[in-house]
Amino acid sequence: MNNSIIEELLAPINSFLQCETPELWIDEAKKSENLQVLLVDHLVCELKAAQSAMFLIRKYAVDKESAAALLEWLKPFEALIYKRDGNWRELADKNKLTKAMIPKSNTAYGQDLIDKMVMLIKEELHHFYQVLEIMDEYGVEYQSITPCRYAKGMLRHVKSYEPDALVDKLIIGAYIEARSCERFAKLAPHVDERLGDFYISLLRSEARHYQDYLLLAQEISELDITERIKFFGGIEAELILSPDKDFKFHSGVPS
């Protein structure tokens, strides 16, 4: 992917985010001793992104029977992370989810949510597998890590009633995807060529993911969501710019 394409993909993301990643975070991320935590946290983030998208389908778009079947489909990926159960090389053959497997939704926005989230789930789990491949190449073993404050820091501001709660979750999803995209681009020049090329390869799908989240949020909301986007943008920027003792892929300024 050449520089002009990268700049074209990043331009709307940089306009959407209310701040850039601080240089102090990049300086910490460049340290070789932090490669393991970055890769493991990236791996977990890809699974969580798929889980979050699956949760939205299950909660807002399908019946209980279908929701249970979808939960079962995701189990091999979760078992590897949470139970250290299974062979990671076999997961590539388990990423077979299609829109045809999910019944049509009866809600006004449900089918669009299904269509966008199924594509996102498949891509996030493909990235999950790619990170596992890279960890294997680099000799990085998976180890349990604590979640950083980032997503939780935004989720605590979600409204308690629908459809506003769903709209808020979609806006938060957009910020997580956009920040991931921005950080991949920031990190790429400072890591070796193999990892840098991988980070750049993720930009196109991550850029589309944040836009899909925003389009869904506006489709579902009865009101213009511009102010709500700004609200969460401010919270997201504060989490990125404020001191943070815990270094992770989405953490704040290392303290």
Results as ranks from 00 to 15, higher is better:
E236F: 03
D115K: 12
A188F: 04
A108Q: 08
L35W: 07
I26H: 04
D224E: 11
A29W: 00
G139M: 11
P254Y: 00
P254G: 06
C19W: 02
K104C: 05
G173I: 03
I5A: 13
I13D: 05
L38P: 05
L97Y: 07
L74A: 07
L24N: 09
I240F: 00
P22F: 00
R179E: 13
E236R: 12
A188V: 04
D112H: 15
P76A: 09
P103T: 01
E238A: 12
I225F: 14
H190V: 13
N2T: 09
I176P: 02
R149V: 09
V44I: 15
A217E: 02
A29Y: 00
E177P: 07
E236Y: 01
E137R: 11
I134Q: 11
I176Q: 12
V158W: 00
S221R: 08
L80M: 06
F55G: 11
D197R: 11
K30Y: 15
E33F: 10
L10E: 13
M54N: 14
E46A: 09
Q18I: 03
S4H: 10
I102D: 02
K186Q: 08
E133F: 03
L155R: 09
A100V: 07
S205K: 12
Y142H: 12
P22R: 01
A29T: 02
I145A: 08
Q130M: 15
S4R: 09
A50K: 00
F247Q: 03
A237F: 02
V131D: 02
S32Y: 08
D246N: 10
A68I: 14
F249A: 04
A92M: 09
P12K: 01
I145M: 14
L10T: 10
L56S: 09
I200S: 03
A50R: 00
L43E: 00
K122P: 03
F198T: 04
S160D: 08
I220P: 01
K59C: 04
K245I: 06
L10K: 05
I225M: 07
